[in-house]
Design a protein around this nucleic acid. Sequence first.
DNA 1: CCTTGAGCTTCCAGTGACTGGAAGCCCTAT
DNA 2: ATAGGGCTTCCAGTCACTGGAAGCTCAAGG
Lengths: 141, 141
Amino acid sequence: MNIGEVAERSGIPPKTIRYYEDIGLVRPQRSGNGYRAFRETDLHKLAFLGRARALGFSIEDCRNLLSLYEDETRESAQVKTIAEEHLSAIDDKIAQLQEMRETLSHLVEACHGDHRPDCPILKDLSGALAGCKPTTGRSAD
Amino acid sequence: MNIGEVAERSGIPPKTIRYYEDIGLVRPQRSGNGYRAFRETDLHKLAFLGRARALGFSIEDCRNLLSLYEDETRESAQVKTIAEEHLSAIDDKIAQLQEMRETLSHLVEACHGDHRPDCPILKDLSGALAGCKPTTGRSAD
DNA sequence: CCTTGAGCTTCCAGTGACTGGAAGCCCTAT
DNA sequence: ATAGGGCTTCCAGTCACTGGAAGCTCAAGG
């Protein structure tokens, strides 16, 4: 198989497949013309990588998962550990994003978003207290 | 003010402040000895940047927010638009992470995580149906 | 005056995981 | 013979920093 076909079947772009070879994740053979010659196992590995990446595993995690996958003497605990750590990293990220979301959505709601320059979002970013409504005036609808 | 004091007061590391100058976000003056000489307004800007970055705005967003902040003729709608787009990007990211989290947590639960090699996580990544009982089905080699 | 050490300067390189583009070879069809 | 598409390599850029090296400046202590 040439790289184009593998790319199509694995869903991973040719550029990325070459990159994966560069960093040693796959080692396709070469045809006489210098083209990469992929076997079914290479395709299989790439599909594995694609799914692992889609779950957000880092390349280094993928490398480890792949070697565990190929190691018949692995202990599932090793795999589980990697997955659990990743899961907890995802949880952290979600929590962080939700905190941002919380703050930001309040600010967006508070901003009337019209032609006037007055803006609670900027006020908050500039360090003023945004939540305190000054007695100055009523916001529009 | 030298960079060290500004770093401390703004919470932004010196390296980052220099980087922000590089990309034109702040333009401190220079003392005779070549040291950066920050004014209060520079400090103010850096604090603004720190808060905007903490809300996840990209550097380009920050640049735009900063120029709106300094533009007395701005319309709050412009600010709101930037914030809304960012908010929606955050929502997308949260959704994506939650989907990963969902899949991954099921897999982690399903994996007994002991000394045996059998592992539903790897099985899933390799493309097999994770819920299926073993059927020996080896793919082509 | 000299030394020491902290703080400042610049520039270069690396991070993660690709992605775009240029220059050029290979293969097939017409 | 030529045209096109696919393949090759290598270089550079992305994003937002961060680390480190080499070297200058400044204030304090001996």
